[in-house]
Amino acid sequence: MPLSEHEQRMLEQMERALYAEDPKFATALEGSGLRTYTRRRVYQAVVGFLVGIALLMTGVVAPQFWIISVVGFLVMLGCAVLAVTGWRKAPKPGEQQARGRQSGGRTRHSMMDRIEARWQRRRDEQQGGGH
């Protein structure tokens, strides 16, 4: 169920007020920080992978601690999955701006779309949970 025109106008007014009061915060909400977040997540996964290798090697060198090798392997596997999924989800440079230009030259439109999608998910969850 899409938002009514009144609800859309109210959200647009709130969005304009947010941009007027704190443009830096509004830009952060807009999704420009998503690329930074996913890049950081990939870097953390790479570091975790290296820690997993160290644990694996420690377990190989000291055979009485074979469980450390297993833990190291699991850490490596988990970090590899995190790195791959983070890398796939990362928007390409300029992708965020291109999406905003397609919506009439306003990057604020994408934030409005996300808010509307969240609202729709909540309504679907409430309707699904009640039946």
Results as ranks from 00 to 15, higher is better:
Glu15Asp: 15
Gly78Val: 06
Val81Pro: 00
Leu82Glu: 14
Glu7Ser: 11
Phe49His: 10
Ala90Cys: 14
Gly59Cys: 08
Tyr19Ser: 04
Gly72His: 07
Leu82His: 04
Trp66Phe: 15
Glu95Arg: 07
Arg35Ser: 08
Gln96Phe: 06
Ala90Leu: 11
Ser32Glu: 08
Ser4Tyr: 06
Ser69Asp: 01
Lys24Val: 15
Arg101Cys: 00
Asp113Met: 12
Ile68Asp: 10
Met57Tyr: 02
Pro23Tyr: 09
Gln97Met: 12
Ala54Trp: 10
Pro2Ala: 14
Met112Pro: 00
Gly31Val: 06
Ile53Tyr: 04
Ala83Ser: 14
Lys89Trp: 08
Ala20Thr: 04
Ser110Leu: 07
Arg40Met: 11
Gly31Pro: 07
Ala28Trp: 10
Thr85Glu: 08
Ala28Phe: 10
Gly48Val: 06
Glu21Met: 08
Ile115Pro: 01
Arg108Ser: 11
Phe49Val: 03
Phe25Met: 13
Met111Pro: 00
Ala17Gln: 05
Gly52Arg: 03
Gln8Ala: 08
Ala98Gly: 00
Lys89Phe: 05
Arg101Met: 14
Leu56Arg: 01
Val60Ile: 15
Val46Phe: 06
Arg121Lys: 14
His109Lys: 02
Arg118Gly: 13
Val81Gly: 04
Trp87Phe: 12
Arg114Ile: 03
Gln102Ser: 07
Glu7Arg: 13
Trp66Ser: 15
Cys79Phe: 02
Arg122His: 03
Gly86Gln: 07
Arg114Lys: 09
Leu77Pro: 03
Leu82Asn: 13
Arg101Gln: 15
Gly94Ser: 05
Arg9Pro: 00
Leu3Trp: 02
Gln64Val: 12
Phe49Asn: 09
Ser69Gln: 07
Met57Thr: 12
Gly33Thr: 12
Ser110Phe: 02
Gly48Glu: 05
Met112Tyr: 05
Arg101Trp: 14
Pro93Thr: 09
Gln44Val: 10
Ala83Asn: 11
Gly94Val: 08
Val70His: 02
Val84Met: 10
Ala83Ile: 04
Leu11Asn: 13
Ala83Pro: 02
Val42Pro: 00
Gly31Glu: 09
Arg101Glu: 15
Phe25Glu: 03
Ala98Tyr: 03
Ala90Trp: 03
Ser110His: 09
Cys79Tyr: 00
Arg88Lys: 12
Leu55Asp: 11
Asp113Ala: 11
Trp119Asn: 06
Gly72Phe: 10
Phe49Arg: 05
Arg114Asp: 06
Lys89Gln: 09
Leu82Gly: 05
